[in-house]
Structure formats: C-alpha cells, structure tokens
C-alpha cells in the first residue's frame, strides 16, 4: 500500500515535470478566466484607464441609404471630480448650431444626471431633462446612452462565450436592461481580451430583432491610453449609418472645475 502511494506520487510528479511550469501557470489562468463573469468583464471595460480628463474633437458623418452625407463637428471635454463626471460639448458645425453647447454632470451615486444646453440665439443656459437618454443625438444613429452615458448597473451582464476573430480573443457579453421599457431589449458586446475594449456591439429592438450594429474600425494608444479613433454605427432596419472620427485627442489636459461652468458654455473657451 505504501509502495503504491509512493509510486503514484512519483508518476504525478514526473507528469507535472514533463508538462512544464508554463503549463501549470496556463491551467491556473484558464481556471481564473473560466470564472470571470459578464459583469466583471463589463466592469473592466467601464473602469478602463481614461486618464485625468480628456479633450478631443468629434466628427460625425451621417450617411443615409442613398449615400448622402451630413457632417457635424464637436469639441468636447470630460473629467471626473470625486463623485461626479463632468462633460462639456461645443458644437462647431454646421453653421446653424455653431455656438451651441451642452453640459452633463453624471453622478456615481445613482442620482439623476444634470444637463444644460446653451442656445446662442436665446443667450441663455437652460436646464433640460436628463431622463431621455434613449433620444438620438443630433439626428445621428447614436443615442445619448450609446455615446457613453449609460451606467454599468443599468444592465444585467452575462458572458455568452469566447470567440477568436483574426487571431484575437474576444469575450462576448450579453447585456439586458434592468428596466423593461428601454429602447433596446438587449445588447451584445465583443470585448477584446486583456485590453478590455469593446470593438463590436449589436443592439436589439424591443421585439428582439437586430436594430443596429456598432463597429470600431480603428483604435490606437494616445498618451499611453487605448482610444477608439474611428467607429461606425449602422441602423440595419433603415440602412442609415453614422461614422464617428475622433481627432486632436489629449489626455490629462489639465482641466479644472471651471471648465464645466455656465461661463464656459456661453464663451466656448
């Protein structure tokens, strides 16, 4: 009996030695990966390093099914302050919206966002309702939520599978809204393993049909931070598309709280 035990230990030890140390590590990692949940993946996507604020210029190209194009340009700034993330947008073109600005304060503790709009013709900063996050932004195929306003806890996330595309591994995560009356019945995201960046997303309407598809066409490191440069949202039900191109990107641009005020909305500084 004792001899048998010793023999078993020797066999196991020999097998382990033969399989190599890397194999042991891989097995441990795989075990960890197998445990990772959809929520944890999306947490990592939401909490990816975005620096201490960002300044960028956003170009939106709206393309209808006949190929006719309309272009909108926005200069935007955002930064987190303690419990609140502040964002300010200045509309540069077309001409009839030039000078308009939009400001959003998003609270991490679950309170409703505060939103304001400045209309130069009225010379007035107006508070607007932040309830309608599912409204489309400037006639594009992006809703305010699609533009990044949605919070992690507003959906239940589930890891569906892992997929290999062009040699890269993606986590495929399904997100179902907690509130049933939301514009989408579910979304499915393709998250690049280890980089925690979503490169594809499908949006399903309330009937469960595929409504829109978001594809990231280009991403790169800017100031050491992985950044989506070009993306396209296509509405598959009406063949309308919106391309988003980001330029003049600067992380940690030294923004302070005074950037996100009524004064700046009016002056466009």
């Amino acid at each position: 009996m004792r001899k048998k035990s010793v023999l078993l230990i020797v066999v196991v030890f020999t097998f382990l030695m033969a399989s190599g140390f890397n194999g042991i590590v891989t097995s441990i990692v795989n075990a960890e990966e197998a445990k990772i949940s959809g929520k944890e993946i999306m947490e990592r996507v939401y909490n990816r390093d975005e620096g201490d604020g960002r300044a960028s210029t956003l170009k939106m190209v709206l393309i209808n099914k006949h190929g006719s194009q309309r272009v909108r340009k926005i200069r935007q700034f955002n930064k987190s302050f303690d419990n609140v993330e502040k964002k300010i947008m200045f509309f540069l073109s077309p001409q009839d919206v030039r000078g308009t600005s939009f400001m959003n304060w998003s609270y991490q503790d679950g309170r409703n966002d505060s939103q304001w709009i400045y209309l130069p013709a009225l010379r007035k900063v107006k508070r607007i309702s932040a309830e309608n996050k599912s409204d489309y932004f400037m006639g594009s195929d992006f809703t305010y939520d699609d533009m990044g306003d949605r919070k992690l806890e507003e959906d239940k996330h589930q890891l569906l599978r892992k997929e290999e595309i062009d040699g890269e591994i993606f986590y495929v995560v399904e997100s179902i809204p907690v509130k049933e009356d939301y514009i989408y019945s579910k979304t499915i995201s393709w998250v690049l393993k280890d980089k925690w960046i979503g490169l594809k997303k499908e949006f399903y309407d309330q009937q469960g049909n595929l409504l829109k598809e978001l594809k990231v066409n280009e991403y790169q490191e800017v100031d050491g931070i992985l950044t989506i440069i070009k993306s396209e949202m296509e509405n598959l039900q009406n063949s309308h598309r919106t391309q988003i191109i980001l330029s003049d990107i600067k992380y940690n641009p030294g923004l302070d709280a005074n950037k996100f005020t009524e004064r700046n909305m009016k002056l466009g500084l």
Binding site: N112, S114, K126, R127, I128, S129, A130, E131, N132
Partner: peptide
C-alpha cells in the same frame, strides 16, 4: 429657478 423632476423641468 429651474429644477428637474423625472422627465419634467
């Protein structure tokens, strides 16, 4: 003053 209450301002 102005204030937001759900979808109302």
């Amino acid at each position: 003053f102005s204030t937001m209450r759900d979808a109302f301002v």
